[in-house]
Simulated assay, not measured.
Amino acid sequence: MAMQFYASPEQVQRDRSEYARKGIARGRSAVVLTYEGGILLVAENITTLRKISEIYDKIGFAAVGRYNEFESLRRAGIRMADVNGYSYDRRDVTGRFLANAYTQTLGAIFTETQKPYEVEICIAQVGASPETDELYRITYDGSVMDEPGFMAMGGQAEAISTVLRERHDGAADLPTALHLAAEALGSVGGENGQARTLDAKQLEVAVLDRRRKGRAFRRIQGAALTTLLEGEKDVPEKELGDVDAAPPPPATDKPTVSAASEEEPNSPESADPAEPADGVNGDGS
């Protein structure tokens, strides 16, 4: 008679944790940090697939790990935020609300399914002042941490966090914060432990700008990103990018007269209604 294999619950949890950590470590890292104008989200990314996204008006999303898994979480978060904002009030959609939802979802997946999600995500909400900014880090097992001003995700997050911890300044301007984020991401992964220099083509960058009304999220890419990485501070505000899917532009003025009513001048319908069309009495007599 074959013996049934048995593993203690503690061993099962350890195996799942190790599996998820190894999967996350294979991907590139991301950092999120505050600066004087809002929250900066930077990910090392050489593909067209997005690691950083907008969730709601003042809320951003960043993730590392397996793309198909955190993409499904991102889409679910957007749907949840839209439904709650429409059903109640837009102010009821907060970063804490979404972080709690992601915590429950990832916790249930980790404990109840055979394979855990290989993801780490960050929910960032920009406030009216630096003191009210919120950064939530949610790990593969549903654990959530409220990070104080900066955080790093990925396989070498500890080394990256060390660079951020030593030099992060919440009062820094955008070019300074971006340069720090790029330097922190480039401090790991080089040959023989050497630091790397990351350029605009290797970075995905977005900000939550507290000075913007309505939707605070916008991407920074192209020439504007190159300029900021070089330390320039005179990039025009309008060139720093926009949201992923901006609302449609205002509709053009619609014609007040239907095209069907523009008849030919010689047609009977176009005759002056003040003069009878039959040329007699106008009553058919």
Rank of each mutant, 00 (worst) to 15 (best):
G37K: 07
L135F: 02
A274Q: 11
P248G: 12
E120P: 10
G127H: 04
T105R: 14
A246F: 01
A181P: 01
L174R: 01
Y6T: 08
F97K: 00
K238D: 13
S261G: 02
I78P: 01
P255V: 07
S53I: 02
L73A: 10
F70Q: 02
A159L: 10
R219V: 10
D199I: 07
L73H: 08
I220R: 06
A251D: 13
K51H: 11
T94C: 04
P276T: 07
L98A: 05
D272G: 06
R90N: 02
R16L: 08
P273E: 04
R210G: 03
A271C: 09
E204K: 06
R212Q: 08
L49V: 11
Q156E: 11
A159H: 10
G190N: 09
V32T: 10
A184L: 04
D133Y: 15
F70Y: 12
F61C: 03
R219N: 14
E232F: 12
E18M: 13
V42N: 03
R21K: 11
D15A: 12
T111G: 03
A99L: 05
D141E: 08
P268S: 09
D141I: 05
E204H: 01
G149H: 10
D133C: 06
R50N: 03
G37Q: 07
R96P: 08
A157H: 11
Y140S: 09
R210T: 06
A177M: 08
T139V: 06
E232I: 01
A157S: 11
K201I: 00
Y67W: 15
D133Q: 05
P248S: 14
T103G: 15
G27D: 09
T113N: 15
A76C: 02
Q104V: 11
A159T: 07
Q221D: 13
E263T: 12
N45Q: 13
I123D: 03
R196E: 14
R14N: 13
L135V: 02
T132F: 13
A259D: 13
Q13W: 04
A200M: 10
M153R: 01
I123P: 04
V188A: 08
E118I: 01
L49Q: 12
V235P: 12
A25W: 02
E263M: 14
L174P: 00
G142F: 05
E204T: 06
R219I: 03
A157I: 01
F61P: 03
G154W: 08
R137T: 06
R96E: 15
G170A: 09
I160L: 05
L228K: 05
T111K: 08
P276C: 10
D82T: 10
